[in-house]
Design a protein around this nucleic acid. Sequence first.
DNA 1: CGAAGCTTTGAACGAGTTCAAGATAGGTGG
DNA 2: CCACCTATCTTGAACTCGTTCAAAGCTTCG
Lengths: 246, 246
Amino acid sequence: MGPVLRKLECGAALSADDRRTAELMCQNERSFGAREDVIREGEQPQGVHAVLEGFACRYKLLPNGSRQILAWLIPGDFCDLHVSILGAMDHGIATLSPCRIAYLPQRDVEAMTSHRTNLTRALWWSTLVDEAVLRQWLVGVGRRSAEKQVAHLICELLVRLRVVGLVEGGVFDFPITQGELADAVGLTAVHVNRVVQHLRHCGLIRLQDRTLAVLDEGALRELAEFNANYLHLGEPRSKERANSGN
Amino acid sequence: MGPVLRKLECGAALSADDRRTAELMCQNERSFGAREDVIREGEQPQGVHAVLEGFACRYKLLPNGSRQILAWLIPGDFCDLHVSILGAMDHGIATLSPCRIAYLPQRDVEAMTSHRTNLTRALWWSTLVDEAVLRQWLVGVGRRSAEKQVAHLICELLVRLRVVGLVEGGVFDFPITQGELADAVGLTAVHVNRVVQHLRHCGLIRLQDRTLAVLDEGALRELAEFNANYLHLGEPRSKERANSGN
DNA sequence: CGAAGCTTTGAACGAGTTCAAGATAGGTGG
DNA sequence: CCACCTATCTTGAACTCGTTCAAAGCTTCG
């Protein structure tokens, strides 16, 4: 099962037909290298993009050259579900690692959202969760100490990657540089480095060779004051629930 | 014309029928005093709330007692459009000034979104714009200096309030305390005070008696590096456009 | 092997915080 | 109408978390 379907199933109960449709829509894919632009700010893509493999991010550039990363996009995440309604991208999408990215043509998405209620619901669920994650990031950047914030980000990533089956025993692929981490949490690469080292020395994580191991998830969550509610993965969010998959 | 309709018309072209429906839905209203909770984190409201008059905010509280304001809610804004899909509020809604708040029962919203395509589109547009605003706030908290950020926030509020007709000659009601401003931009009340004073001394704004006057909008925008694109109020975002209303 | 990018370390610096006190303003009860 | 109370705003001074600048190690990869 592809990561997109895997994720969508968290958002609504899908029929066998829905599932087949969802998988079919992700056929048309394209590969990108690391650190490439997938969509630029101001563009108006005609279809919808979704990450199948690799890490990407939403980001915004400021006149002074600094960058703010607005979201990590991991397998199963949509890049631009909103753009058909909003008209143009108000931020860019770039890869962090090499990526496979699916492209769903506009007409397929429209056909889908006009016929398949559950799938539509799952799609909206996904953009609403993105928004909830964004809120949590704002809390982090605004009110958390550097260390708690980095810890929180790691906890979040751990949970999100688990949903799409990319974590094994607390260990996952982490192609994000400390500089990119810094752009996400609104700090400097230098300071992120010091924070990461401290987390290492506390025995909470191991980070090397683009691999992140969470050594003590409980302690990390406690430090971060992490509560996964905002990811809305929990149980009965919707009336009916047929087959939870996974 | 009520603020909700006024705002929705920015998101999609509405028929006379759509408009009537939208206005009717906001009949059922309730009044709140200043600094009251409207919806608490974790609650699962059965309908949808919208601000008709006054200022409110989304917010999140941290264990250490600090607060992060996640959004200003001004007349025309919905509080919890997402909750029917996400299941529970992952943040609270509180008033900042006395407010009139409309309550649209679940079944009305459902009836509407199953029949009226344009209205549905306008509703989704509205939550997507909320998300875009959130992204801009993240950029501000993460990467802008205190002064630019406060200036940016003022520019944004000016534009948003204009949409619902609450600005006259650069002057508008501003019931937000400096402490609340601080919770929005992730700073201290003390520092916000110093920033506000500086903006005053530069002749950019006047702020007194809960009233904010933007004295030099051009200069304020320039300082803030403000570009209203992200508010997606611009022109032809959608294919058809019948009557743009004002 | 060499270049380029990432990580690590140190030391000086600064934007924003913290703490504390005083000034203003609006609202209430007498 | 005044006295008082509380919340907000204002100011100053010390302090700190995170920045900046700079240089040195480490990887990766052609």
